[in-house]
């Protein structure tokens, strides 16, 4: 999409310089070297800073995926199966394939990734920019894993950016979802975060239903799930993150 916009602009420039050349030639027989075409103006960009804060007690967040997109793209739909990219993020904290899926989607505009996990109480600011021409339909979604779980994710979804002027700020809070791709065993062997150190992604889908829903929360060994390797420290309630979006350009 970005590429298409640029192409269109330079094609128009090419036409107008041809027209100038033809007009000059009609007045004289001496060939005049064509004037150097003016460099195309740099495309007008918009920029946003997305600050993700971890509100939980003891659930680090995996590096955040940030996706600007139009209507028609969604990280997930409640009641539908997670994509393979979201499964990789939700089970292993790896956002690579989710971002690749977004980049391949015709409704996506731009994407960015956080650089590090975000610990409880901490935050990270991630910049994302794209052509101003795309702003009128732009929405923002983010996704990250609560890493001391089997497959809990959180984020904001479909936040409209179109009405934002430079300096405007929108703050939203996000709740925890269950990707529905892995049973919530709460066993260390299935938890990639520091509370488990176990396996992250596994392609087997063995949750009760292969669909994204809200998360019921961590039960923990301290609240009666005797096979759990998680403690009351790993429990959480909604909201689990805050996302502050500022238009900076």
């Amino acid at each position: 999409m970005t590429y298409f916009s640029k192409q269109k602009k330079s094609a128009l420039l090419g036409l107008s310089s041809l027209f100038v050349l033809a007009a000059c030639n009609s007045g004289s027989d001496i060939p005049v070297p064509p004037p150097a075409p003016p460099p195309p103006p740099p495309p007008s960009m918009v920029g946003f800073e997305v600050t993700v804060s971890n509100l939980t007690n003891a659930q680090p967040l995996s590096p955040v995926a940030v996706i600007a997109h139009q209507e028609g793209y969604a990280v997930f739909q409640i009641g539908s199966p997670a994509t393979a990219g979201l499964e990789l993020l939700a089970e292993g904290g790896d956002n690579t394939d989710l971002l690749a899926e977004a980049d391949a989607d015709s409704n996506a505009i731009a994407s960015a990734s956080g650089s590090d996990p975000i610990g409880p109480g901490n935050s990270e600011t991630i910049a994302i920019e794209f052509l101003e021409a795309d702003l009128s339909n732009a929405r923002l979604s983010t996704s990250t894993m609560l890493v001391n779980t089997n497959d809990a994710i959180t984020g904001i979804n479909q936040l409209s950016l179109s009405g934002m002027s430079v300096g405007d700020v929108i703050t939203q809070r996000g709740v925890a979802y269950d990707a529905g791709t892995e049973a919530n065993t709460e066993r260390a062997a299935h938890i990639p975060g520091p509370a488990g150190g176990g396996e992250g992604f596994n392609a087997t889908r063995d949750d009760r239903a292969d669909q994204v829903t809200m998360h019921i929360g961590v039960i923990s060994q301290d609240d009666g799930l005797l096979t759990s390797d998680l403690t009351d420290q790993h429990r959480f309630d909604n909201p689990v993150i805050q996302v502050r979006v500022e238009r900076t350009q």
Partner: peptide, 25 residues
């Protein structure tokens, strides 16, 4: 809830029947 399907205090399963708000959109 609890994890004892044949006893315990509750007939609900803590792994299935708990929830966190919101519950409907």
């Amino acid at each position: 809830g609890d994890t004892d399907l044949n006893g315990g205090t509750s007939d609900l399963d803590s792994r299935i029947h708990r929830w966190l708000n919101p519950v409907v959109r």
